[in-house]
């Protein structure tokens, strides 16, 4: 998967991109490649990751060798499934301000 577009993305779009990257990588990706592919700064990534984890969209798992991976939860999959509808809904009612 290539790098994300350089166009300024809104918050929902960034969340969608992060979750999509995880899903497309067999629902298991290490934090560093995720940060790179999502095209975010370390600080932004940390903020988004904190938000996604606190909302229960992603969780961090550690394998036997102590390596950390990020995976989607059911809620994360649900977000991906609903994203197109929600984005259209926001657009339809001009809620994106």
């Amino acid at each position: 998967m290539g790098q994300m577009s350089m166009r300024k993305r809104d918050r929902l779009e960034v969340i969608y991109d992060i979750l999509k990257i995880i899903r497309d990588r067999h629902n298991s990706v290490r934090p560093t490649p995720l940060l790179r592919i999502a095209n975010l700064s370390s600080q932004s990534f940390a903020e988004y990751f904190g938000e996604l984890a606190s909302k229960g969209f992603v969780k961090e798992i550690t394998d036997k060798k102590g390596r950390k991976y990020i995976t989607l939860t059911d809620k994360g999959f649900r977000y991906l499934e609903k994203y197109a509808y929600i984005a259209s809904f926001i657009d339809e009612f001009e809620l994106g301000a």
Partner: peptide, 17 residues
């Protein structure tokens, strides 16, 4: 009907709507 959209996104526009 907009509950889930809000709970997934916490989008302020959806909240006010």
């Amino acid at each position: 009907r907009t509950k889930e959209s809000y709970e997934l996104t916490k989008h302020r526009g959806i909240r006010y709507f």
